[in-house]
């Protein structure tokens, strides 16, 4: 019985950490905004599974009162379950907000590729593409590179 419960714990932890790693990989690597939001969704699912697995005890029952009295067997930890129940709903709210911003971005710029978006925003606002620092208005070059070059 204990071997079985440790195996359940192990498989569940492997699934949770794999989901978290896949979500981080998607959010870091991909350039399409909707794919980044899908990565965020996988990351949230992995974290929820991780918290539920922390609260799990082998051979325990669900933390629910039956006919108003405590069950005789041990119960799993209800605190992570309450936390995750809130986190699921908040996660869907975050997704809805992010997708609304995606729609606004698409209507403003006509693309969802983050690098093309960065180029368009840099051209529109007159900032440098790399760091977002505004380029100087006059052509005397008050930039950082001139002060660095004249320093020695």
């Amino acid at each position: 019985m204990t071997e079985e419960t440790t195996l359940v714990d192990f498989i569940s932890y492997v699934g949770a950490i794999s989901l978290i790693l896949l979500g981080i990989f998607a959010m870091v690597t991909f350039r399409h905004l909707i794919r980044i939001i899908f990565g965020l969704m996988l990351l949230e699912a992995g974290v929820n599974l991780f918290l539920i697995t922390i609260g799990y005890r082998g051979g325990a029952v669900a933390p629910i009162l039956v006919n108003g009295e405590l069950p005789t067997a041990a119960m799993v930890d209800p605190i992570p379950q309450a936390l995750v129940l809130t986190a699921i709903v908040i996660g869907v709210g975050v997704q809805a907000l992010a997708l609304a911003l995606v729609i606004k971005t698409y209507k403003a710029y006509g693309t969802l590729d983050t690098q093309i978006l960065a180029q368009k925003i840099a051209e529109e606002t007159g900032t440098k593409l790399i760091d977002g620092i505004p380029t100087p208005i006059s052509d005397t070059g008050t930039g950082l590179e001139e002060s660095l070059s004249t320093k020695p």
């Binding site: 929820n48 599974l49 379950q81 129940l85």
Partner: peptide
Amino acid sequence: LFVALQAPDVALAEAAVGAGVSSVIF
């Protein structure tokens, strides 16, 4: 998986919200 880990209320919320509302939003 949540049902198997003895969390039926979380499983209910995940199935309704994660698979239902999230797909509609996407």
